[in-house]
Amino acid sequence: MDIRQVARQIGVFEKRLVDGLLCILLLAMIFLACLQIGLRTFFSSGLLWADPLLRYLVIWCGMFGAVVATREKKHIAIDVLGYLAAERIKPWIGLLIDFFSSLVAAALTWAAILFVRNEFSFGSIPLLSIPSWGWALVFPLGFGLITLHFLAAISADIKTLVSSQRKTEPGREK
Rank of each mutant, 00 (worst) to 15 (best):
W110V: 14
S163F: 08
F150A: 07
K73C: 05
E119F: 03
P131E: 12
G46R: 05
L148C: 05
V68K: 01
G20Y: 12
I24P: 02
I113P: 01
I89L: 07
L137E: 00
A50H: 07
Q9V: 10
L39M: 14
Q5G: 07
F13A: 15
R55K: 12
G20R: 12
F64Q: 00
P140F: 01
G171D: 09
L35M: 15
L81F: 15
A105V: 03
G65I: 00
A50M: 11
A105G: 05
K159H: 11
S164H: 09
I3K: 15
Y83E: 15
K159A: 14
P126C: 09
W49E: 13
L25F: 11
V80G: 06
F143M: 02
G123K: 01
A156C: 05
P126S: 06
F122S: 08
F42E: 02
E87Y: 06
F31L: 15
G38Q: 06
V80D: 08
L53V: 14
P126H: 09
T41Q: 14
A66E: 01
I97K: 05
L127K: 04
L81S: 11
L127Y: 03
W60D: 00
L53M: 14
I3G: 09
F150K: 02
C23I: 15
A156G: 03
L151W: 04
M63E: 00
A152F: 07
G46M: 10
L57G: 00
K90F: 04
A106E: 04
I113G: 01
G65A: 05
G20T: 08
E173N: 12
L84I: 13
L137Q: 01
F42I: 03
R4G: 07
F13E: 02
G62D: 03
R71A: 08
M29G: 10
L35V: 11
G134L: 01
P52T: 10
L39I: 04
G20C: 10
I30V: 15
K174D: 13
S164M: 13
A153F: 04
V6L: 14
P91A: 04
